[in-house]
């Protein structure tokens, strides 16, 4: 597979350069009154691979969703590459989102739709108005989507319905969907939380490889400390919507994690080693 992949990569000139991400004093308060983020400022360089660690409810899902505007900020500014996301609407916002790939804990595939068309969703932002209206895809869209499926090794399932795939396979298709956007940034919201340990390691390696080979900025939410240490160089810790750690992942001590979690380390905070 690796051979094929490299061939595919070689044929694919990097269509997009990585973008830096900058959050400046970002706060998010939801309409129901809960404050999910408090005055968070961050600078992530183009091509970095960064993990965001915290317990559920610490605001890491919110943080990652402010970057592509799925969650509007209440205060502060979010900048990706040349665009200021906060304050964008409609067509402009969709264009920026087209450059930011995202994968989810629940894979978020349309289960009754085949893998092929699920992957083509990643091309929607690039379609012109006429194509959008008619709902047709260009030869280039098909080419990019199929190449992305090939990259994650899912090309042989291209005509299967998403529901017929295992969790790990579904996440690979979801990665292919994000890759077919030819993104400048890749966001991953708890991408391995619904997977068994070997599959989780495989998906994390896939993200690592994307970061290395495509030089994409990768931002990944995790709640497991060993995955953060193993796959990312820089780690950001969130607790109750506040930034409590920002530093090298490998050197983060147990005490650092206890500070992020706000409690003692428990066995379930570790996934366990690659088998």
């Amino acid at each position: 597979m690796t051979h094929d992949t490299q061939a595919a990569e070689a044929g694919h000139a990097p269509a997009s350069a990585a973008w830096p991400i900058r959050l400046d004093g970002v706060s998010v308060t939801y309409p129901n009154g809960t404050t999910a983020l408090r005055d968070v400022s961050l600078d992530i360089d183009a091509g970095e691979m960064v993990s965001i660690v915290g317990l559920s409810g610490s605001g890491k899902s919110t943080l990652i969703r402010t970057i592509n505007g799925l969650v509007p900020v209440t205060a502060g500014t979010v900048t990706v590459g040349p665009h200021t996301v906060s304050g964008l609407h409609g067509r402009r916002l969709r264009e920026v989102r087209g450059h930011v790939g995202m994968i989810f804990q629940g894979f978020n595939l349309a289960t009754r739709v085949d893998v092929y068309r699920n992957t083509l969703v990643g091309r929607f932002a690039r379609a012109g108005r006429l194509r959008t209206l008619l709902g047709v895809t260009s030869a280039r869209d098909r080419e990019v989507a199929l190449t992305a499926l090939d990259t994650v090794g899912m090309l042989d399932k291209v005509w299967s319905r998403a529901a017929a795939l295992s969790g790990g396979q579904q996440q690979r298709v979801a990665i292919a969907r994000a890759l077919s956007q030819e993104p400048s940034i890749m966001l991953a919201d708890e991408p391995v939380a619904s997977l068994d340990p070997p599959t989780a390691h495989a998906v994390m390696s896939e993200l690592e490889r994307i970061n290395a080979e495509r030089h994409l900025t990768v931002l990944v939410n995790l709640h497991l400390m060993d995955l953060a240490r193993q796959y990312t160089r820089r780690m950001i810790g969130l607790r109750d919507g506040e930034l409590v750690y920002d530093g090298p992942a490998a050197e983060a001590t147990e005490a650092d994690f206890e500070q992020i979690y706000g409690r003692r380390i428990r066995p379930q905070d570790r996934l366990g080693d690659r088998t």
């Binding site: 592509n68 799925l70 087209g98 790939g101 995202m102 969703v121 929607f124 932002a125 709902g135």
Partner: peptide
């Protein structure tokens, strides 16, 4: 949500997914 994150319009999402 995934399609929205990928920059799709509502009409396109409805139709394709």
């Amino acid at each position: 949500e995934a399609a929205r994150a990928g920059g799709a319009t509502q009409g396109r999402m409805n139709r394709a997914l």
